[in-house]
Simulated assay, not measured.
Amino acid sequence: MKYGFALLIGLLLSLPVHATGANDPKTVVLDFYKLAMQEFKPREAFARYAAADFVEHSADSAGGTAASTVTFLEGLIKQFPDPHWEVVRSVAEGDLVFLHVRVTPAPKAPAIAVAEIFRVRNGKIVEHWDVIQHEPAKAVNPNSMF
């Protein structure tokens, strides 16, 4: 019996541990996204959640740095002052976090589907990629993009 208990403890200790709490990659990304995109404070969000060596892969951000991405997002907010950013799905695997987002740039405007991919290291966002698809006026597929 004592060997069975020791074996059980050994098996439990060998299981992978998933981070939870403030430095959990999914928590970091969701907190970042809320502050940057839903509260319209990208500069504050990058200061708080982005690593010093942050790399932006989006073709919309000239320079590929945190500073250029903040400038791009601030311009986007000025261009569309009443957008709605809704995280429809979020998935985390290791240091990667994936978001499926519905963006409505203005009231009654067609939605935009955005797939966001973040890499997190030591509680800071170090990389970001995105894929963007505008909702067509008339979809040939009856299934929702969301």
Rank of each mutant, 00 (worst) to 15 (best):
A52D: 09
V120D: 06
V88K: 02
V91T: 14
A45M: 09
H128M: 12
R119D: 09
F5Q: 10
V120H: 04
G21H: 02
D130Y: 11
I125Q: 03
K2D: 07
T69I: 10
P16L: 03
K41R: 15
E127F: 01
L11P: 12
A111M: 11
I77N: 07
S61V: 12
L35H: 01
G21K: 02
G4I: 12
G63K: 03
S68G: 15
A59W: 01
P142R: 09
I117Y: 00
Y49A: 06
F80N: 13
H18T: 07
S58H: 03
S90N: 07
V28N: 01
L15V: 04
Q133L: 08
A36N: 14
L8D: 08
I112K: 08
N122H: 05
Q79H: 07
F40S: 15
H57R: 07
V70C: 08
T20P: 00
T71I: 07
I9Y: 01
E93V: 02
M1S: 13
T20Q: 06
I132G: 10
Q79V: 10
V131F: 04
E39T: 11
L73D: 06
V103D: 05
S14H: 02
A47R: 12
T104P: 00
P25N: 04
T65H: 00
L8I: 12
A36G: 15
Y49M: 08
P110Q: 06
T65D: 01
V126G: 11
E74H: 01
S14N: 09
M145D: 15
G123D: 03
G10H: 03
F40Q: 14
F72D: 08
A111I: 11
E44Y: 03
P105Q: 04
F40L: 15
A36M: 14
Q79K: 14
T69V: 13
A50V: 11
H84I: 11
N143L: 15
Y49V: 11
L99P: 00
A59M: 04
